[in-house]
């Protein structure tokens, strides 16, 4: 998935996270994260963002995220929404099936 423009998803409300994704010319994901729970969960949030982008095939992007205590599933949802918006794509792929 190619990042074509700036895509943002999420809010500053408690339990949410704002993820902002911008185009980057060179390979790699450059991630900047702010979180009130940085010490405890910073690495986990970063891992979820990177994994979600990896699943979507995003290999080059600047990512800025401001976390307000989001669960992993929220981090993944906001990252996906921001990425699709930034890629100007609506070819959603829904893989998982709840058992």
């Amino acid at each position: 998935m190619d990042i074509k423009k700036t895509g943002v998803a999420g809010t500053m409300e408690s339990s949410d996270i704002i993820v902002r994704i911008e185009p980057k010319e060179t390979e790699g994901i450059e991630l900047e994260l702010e979180s009130a729970v940085m010490q405890q969960y910073g690495k986990q949030i970063e891992r979820v963002i990177r994994e979600t982008l990896g699943e979507l095939g995003v290999t080059r992007a600047y990512v800025n995220a401001v976390d307000k205590g989001a669960l992993d599933c929220t981090v993944a949802a906001r990252t996906s929404a921001a990425a699709y918006r930034a890629a100007e794509s609506s070819d959603y792929v829904w893989k998982e099936v709840r058992i």
Binding site: A9, G10, L71, D72, C73, T74, A76, A77, R78, S80, A81, Y84, R85, S90, W94, E96, V97, R98
Partner: peptide, 15 residues
């Protein structure tokens, strides 16, 4: 609408 769809989908599959 797109963001909410991702959120509800992820909540149903993960929580």
């Amino acid at each position: 609408k797109d963001a909410a769809r991702f959120l509800v989908y992820n909540a149903l599959t993960k929580l």
